[in-house]
């Protein structure tokens, strides 16, 4: 299996410039192993989808890229993750700066119970922006980028929790891109939304990929085929197959992948 992984990884290094590189990355939660020696490359300005049954480790891997796993007690990470050449698990890495470069959108939309404007300004203020003209400019531009501006421009000062589920999730995307990350991690961003709201998020992802490198975890196979360029299939903490989305879905090399994408298990 790891031989395939390395070959897969080697293929990509030739094709596109890898932005995120993991080598033999393993994660343990206490005695439970969540990820087993993952080696893969994520290319710049592509949408990479992580698929696999629940508990396969895809979210854990996503959370390695901005070190959100650090927040959990008893988590042990071994192996290497580099982003743009920097080993992000080195002890002298500034996690605050890392998370500024690597934004994240969560499965359950989690806007702060503050106004829409305050939600966007939160990250900006954290990173030292004080001037109110500049802040308001970024509020507008990020809401426009998240395709939310027209819906909320007249009520920027109302509580974000009054928005619909889909709007809240787009607000979370706007909040993440306001601080100008290079990478956007999305952990099943549309799993709690209705089909219309999901379509909007997917449309948004396709426009965002021009500016950001996007890694998305999804349970929805159609979604993966619609929006992603590359797909990685995980099973029981291991990377089973990784390649162009089309190839994974139409001509998978591995039997497990084929069973999963055709809906025979998972």
């Amino acid at each position: 299996m790891s031989q395939t992984q390395i070959e897969n990884a080697a293929d990509h290094e030739k094709a596109e410039a890898p932005l995120i590189v993991t080598r033999d990355l393993s994660v343990h939660y206490g005695a439970v192993q969540a990820l087993n020696q993952i080696s893969l490359n994520v290319s710049e300005h592509l949408v990479t989808a992580f698929i696999g049954p629940s508990g396969c480790g895809k979210s854990t891997l996503l959370r390695c890229f901005n070190r959100m796993n650090d927040l959990i007690d008893h988590v042990k990470t071994t192996g290497k993750v580099t982003i743009a050449g920097h080993d992000i698990y080195r002890s002298d890495i500034d996690v605050v700066q890392l998370r500024k470069k690597v934004g994240m959108v969560f499965q359950k939309s989690n806007p702060f119970p503050k106004s829409i404007r305050e939600n966007i300004m939160y990250g900006l203020r954290l990173h030292g922006m004080r001037e109110s003209n500049r802040l308001n400019e970024v509020v507008e531009s990020s809401l426009r980028s998240a395709a939310l501006w027209d819906e909320v421009k007249d009520r920027l000062d109302t509580n974000a929790l009054t928005l619909s589920g889909g709007q809240q999730q787009r607000l979370c995307i706007a909040r993440a891109i306001a601080i100008q990350p290079e990478i956007l991690l999305m952990d099943e961003p549309a799993s709690a939304l209705d089909p219309v709201a999901t379509a909007k998020i997917e449309e948004l992802i396709l426009t965002l990929k021009e500016r950001y490198t996007i890694v998305i975890v999804t349970h929805n196979m159609q979604q993966a085929t619609r929006i992603s360029d590359k797909t990685a299939f995980f099973y029981l903490g291991a990377l089973v197959e990784y390649g162009n989305t089309q190839a994974i879905f139409t001509n998978p090399k591995n039997r497990q992948t084929e069973d999963y994408v055709t809906g025979r298990f998972g």
């Binding site: 700066q97 969560f106 990250g123 954290l126």
Partner: peptide, 18 residues
């Protein structure tokens, strides 16, 4: 308080204290 709020804040680069 929903843990998601803390995660959202820290994913934006806030420290635990912030």
């Amino acid at each position: 308080i929903p843990p998601g709020l803390r995660e959202a804040s820290m994913a934006l680069g806030a420290t635990r204290l912030e």
